[in-house]
């Protein structure tokens, strides 16, 4: 068994987790016109989970996390690649993106760029790679 962590650390880690996850989501959605984006959102997600690893130990976190982070990586890459294909097929260049204006019932006029699909792919990719890394070398102390 690992050494017990202080109650301060466990409480803070537990409290801060939802905020970190929300922040990660915000970074992902903000990405197009403001600072943020898929990569940094993915890193934030992994950092949030790494904090849980540090505080609660590998075994306990792994019990709660779904398996298959490598599948996440493949899905992310596929999304990122797929987002570039329409531009290629329409002859306007690989990864060409378009801005679409939608009017949603509650939010009003919303600007949405197709580049978001790419960002989402990168988010999943980074999260998958990060979680795989944690699983690979988070195990024990050499």
């Amino acid at each position: 068994m690992r050494r017990p962590t202080t109650i301060l650390a466990t409480t803070v880690a537990r409290l801060i987790l939802p905020f970190l996850l929300l922040f990660s989501l915000d970074l992902l959605l903000a990405g197009h016109n403001r600072p943020g984006g898929g990569f940094i959102a993915g890193v934030m997600l992994v950092a949030a989970i790494a904090l849980q690893y540090v505080v609660f130990g590998v075994a306990q976190v792994r019990r709660r996390l779904p398996r298959g982070s490598l599948g996440l990586t493949a899905t992310g890459l596929a999304l990122a690649l797929g987002s570039g294909i329409p531009g290629l097929l329409r002859g306007e260049g690989f990864l060409k993106s378009w801005v679409i204006h939608w009017s949603l019932p509650l939010l009003g006029e919303v600007e949405w760029a197709t580049a978001f699909i790419f960002d989402l792919g990168i988010f999943l990719l980074v999260a998958g790679v990060g979680l795989t890394l944690l699983a690979l070398i988070g195990e024990d102390r050499p």
Binding site: V129, L133, P142
Partner: peptide, 15 residues
């Protein structure tokens, strides 16, 4: 981003 990936690889390699 590339540096991040490379450092991650090197740490796994060292492990």
């Amino acid at each position: 981003v590339i540096g991040f990936g490379v450092s991650a690889f090197l740490l796994v390699l060292l492990y």
